[in-house]
Design a protein around this nucleic acid. Structure first.
Lengths: 211, 211
DNA sequence: TCGCTTCTTGACCCGGCGGTCAACACAGTG
DNA sequence: CACTGTGTTGACCGCCGGGTCAAGAAGCGA
């Protein structure tokens, strides 16, 4: 199994190059329309080399998705102030996600990935499920403290995850020509207003700044 | 061109059968993983018959997407009371869309389709673009009359379209086990709260009933 | 220099899938 | 019944893309 392969630093660089090129191409064309040949040509290497580093096309894709998921999660964790109130945390996480997706436009949102290939659906839903569960836990706390409308936290969490995913998608596909920070701020307002139990709470949360 | 073919009633039934079977399979497996052979086997006919009715697999898919788009649009138009205030219309359209998608689970939301195949992307965005423009026009009126928060109507419209699309997707893929009417009502609340300029307006709109 | 390991190449293989089309069946009409 | 048009069949074809692997190159350490 290529996963257990010990690579020299040169090997690691080569592998990363393939991953980078693949990420760009998958984002541009989708998984199905990106051939292994396209990836290796973009990297300037021969086709057989691909299989030294990856078991197959699918394995490379899964590795990319997992990397993306972990990086997104890290960006969210870094942006979220654990001492903030629940709705503030929702806002921070949503804004961070939008920024992350704008910055790494060659990685696509989890929901886009989820839709792309049915063969990956069950496993790829893992990212969405984890993110949704995180958001739901925060919403539950917000409902309990009265700052978030009394809705089912699981259901509401899908609204946050979906909003982030869609705005990432529209931005990446060129239909929203906004500065990433502007877009992140808009998405933050959207989800805060959607969830806040009244407008004074929404106003307070949106006025909060984190440095 | 098979589009100009005059079909007997028998031919029309056969063609519809193929479309129906294809819709189900595309929804279950995606376009790429659904072969022409799968479709004709599901319909109980021979493979060559497919090409009597459709130029190719792609043509069938495009026809399905167009049918779906028109039907969704019709469902929205029927649900929207033109005399209602803007935010109420937004709510009605969103709820109708969610209901439509729950009812026709073998047709998928426009945004899902959009993501599926890059080869169709430009044309398939037509549905999203039309829907978004409709919603934006309503939002613009709502911003003008002060009932909708002062945001860019185009940007906000993507939030409505995206929310509907995502909730349709989660419901269809079994992660939201809600009655369609319940789900529609939730989505209606979500978008109304996200957009309303203050909570008394949100309350008024959500209290409104249309028989 | 030699031996071993890692990395790289590209011609080739093969299975799968979209699409073809000659032959045939069926239905309707004069 | 003969003719015409519509509808149907399935063996076959060709192309494409994922994957293979023997041969060779490069790198490293003794």
């Amino acid at each position: 199994m290529t996963d257990d392969r010990r690579l020299t630093s040169q090997g690691q660089e080569r592998k990363q190059q393939l991953l980078d090129q693949a990420a760009t191409l998958f984002a541009e064309r989708g998984y199905a329309d990106t051939r292994v040949l396209d990836i290796v040509q973009a990297a300037g290497v021969a086709k057989g080399l691909f299989y030294w580093y990856f078991e197959n096309k699918e394995a490379l894709f899964r590795e990319l998705v997992e990397l993306n998921r972990l990086n997104l999660r890290r960006a969210q964790a870094e942006a979220i102030d654990l001492d903030a109130e629940p709705l503030g945390r929702i806002r921070q996480g949503a804004e961070a996600s939008v920024r992350y997706m704008a910055q790494y436009a060659n990685f696509f949102s989890l929901l886009e990935v989820e839709n792309l290939e049915k063969q990956f659906a069950d496993e790829l839903r893992k990212g969405t499920a984890i993110h949704t569960a995180d958001v739901a836990a925060i919403i539950r706390a917000g409902v309990a403290d009265g700052t978030i409308r009394d809705e089912d936290p699981e259901v509401a969490a899908y609204g946050v995850v979906g909003t982030v995913g869609y705005y990432g998608h529209f931005h990446r596909t060129g239909r929203l020509d906004l500065d990433p920070d502007e877009l992140a701020a808009f998405v933050g307002r959207f989800v805060v207003c959607a969830l806040a139990s009244d407008e004074s709470i929404a106003r307070r949360v949106l006025a909060a700044r984190r440095s």
